[in-house]
Amino acid sequence: MSPQPAHDITLMVNGEAIAESVEPRTTLVDFLREALGLTGSHVGCEHGVCGACTVRLDGVIVRGCLTLAVQCDGRRVETIEGLSDSGELADLQAAFERRNALQCGFCTPGMMLTAQELLAAGGVPSRDTIRAHISGNYCRCTGYHAIVDAIESVAQARAQQG
């Protein structure tokens, strides 16, 4: 089948209004990386298994490779760039660094967005709960232990601050 007509979409990305034209088959993560230059969201497996492409759509995390850009017309998208700039992840980023919770960093943006959704629910989740929550995000460097340590330490610190 030949290339299909592009669709005009408007959406908010990291608080900025974006108007672009996209082919229907363009996934959200490819759109973010290639049309907008937001390369913090990574393309790994492209079938929903690895979690490297995790972004927020209307406030909840989704797979950037299993969402089409054309479906995001009128919606709100947030990426690691926006959440990093806003300071929302500052303590989590510091904890990842302090605990050596990353080596190559490929999984880190997706891992942080996933962790932040669990942390935002409040309380101090058990290590088993943390592991289950990040089960959809592959890391091939750390063995996960340091990542669980980092997430747990942030949960404890945030709980103490109330």
Partner: peptide, 26 residues
């Protein structure tokens, strides 16, 4: 028919299915 797309879009990316039209019901 495209609903959540969590299986369908994976099969599209893998080219395991090649529909001519997606009808989005979201």
């Amino acid at each position: 028919i495209l609903a959540g797309g969590q299986s369908l879009i994976a099969t599209l990316n893998m080219r395991l299915s090649r529909p001519t039209l997606l009808v989005d019901i979201n």
